[in-house]
């Protein structure tokens, strides 16, 4: 969608002439388009979006913080049911998926398409394991008597971790889509799309870092 930076040759020359003036530098992004910051529109947009996501998750985390010890409606609290070793392992899995993701980005930077697909698949798989773990945890909690509507703490717990789970799932869909496109040769070397998906993926991981500590570990 960056094609509207369409410029005629003269304008391009004019812009390039100006790059020597530091304050008005026009820098090419990695697709050869001229942007003021030197960052592609897509990547900047992703970061801007992630900045906004902080506020979304912040709202949900705060809601949980407010309600985490509130079971006036009866039923167990989330903290009564946590299985810390289990959650630690799934946190570790998600952390490692960040590693495989960054390796996928590095692979496409080198033009190593086979490795790119390997790492994409590994990332999706680790994400899938994490989600399976979450589903397992949820149904265990429900069996132990803490459903979504049991009390305010349980509602807040499921809303927060569920929102995060949806984000991970969307990430998995994106990874698989990228894998398919790459297998069909549609992701050329130097394409930024993997890096942008990666930013999203790492952000989801970073949110889990916060959730793991704030929700699970701090009593």
């Amino acid at each position: 969608m960056t094609d509207i930076s369409a410029v005629t040759a003269e304008e391009r020359a004019a812009k390039e002439a100006l790059t020597t003036a530091p304050s008005s530098a026009m820098i090419e992004d990695s697709h050869g388009h001229v942007t003021n910051t030197g960052i592609s529109n897509e990547k900047l947009a992703m970061w801007v979006f992630l900045g906004s996501e902080c506020l979304l998750f912040g709202g949900l985390i705060s809601t949980f913080m407010l309600y985490k010890e509130n079971n006036e409606a009866g039923g167990p609290l989330p903290s009564d049911l946590y299985d810390i070793p289990f959650t630690s392992i799934s946190s570790f899995v998600l952390l490692m998926s960040s590693l495989t993701m960054v390796l996928a980005v590095a692979a496409i930077g080198r033009g190593d398409h086979r490795k790119l697909r390997t790492w994409l698949l590994a990332t999706a798989l680790l994400g899938g394991i994490f989600i399976s773990g979450q589903v397992y945890e949820f149904q265990l909690f429900v069996k132990e008597g803490m459903g979504f509507t049991t009390n305010t703490a349980s509602s807040a717990f499921y809303a927060l971790t569920g929102f995060h789970g949806v984000h991970v799932s969307i990430g998995i869909v994106m990874l698989i889509s990228a894998f398919t496109l790459s297998a069909r040769g549609r992701i050329p070397t130097g394409s930024e799309s993997i890096e942008i998906i990666g930013l999203y993926w790492h952000f989801v991981d970073v949110v889990w870092i916060v959730i793991f500590t704030v929700v699970y570990l701090i009593k």
Partner: peptide
């Protein structure tokens, strides 16, 4: 919301 990342032009088909 998932559409922002995949908006990326590089995915575009010829």
């Amino acid at each position: 919301m998932s559409l922002t990342p995949t908006e990326a032009g590089p995915l575009a088909l010829p």
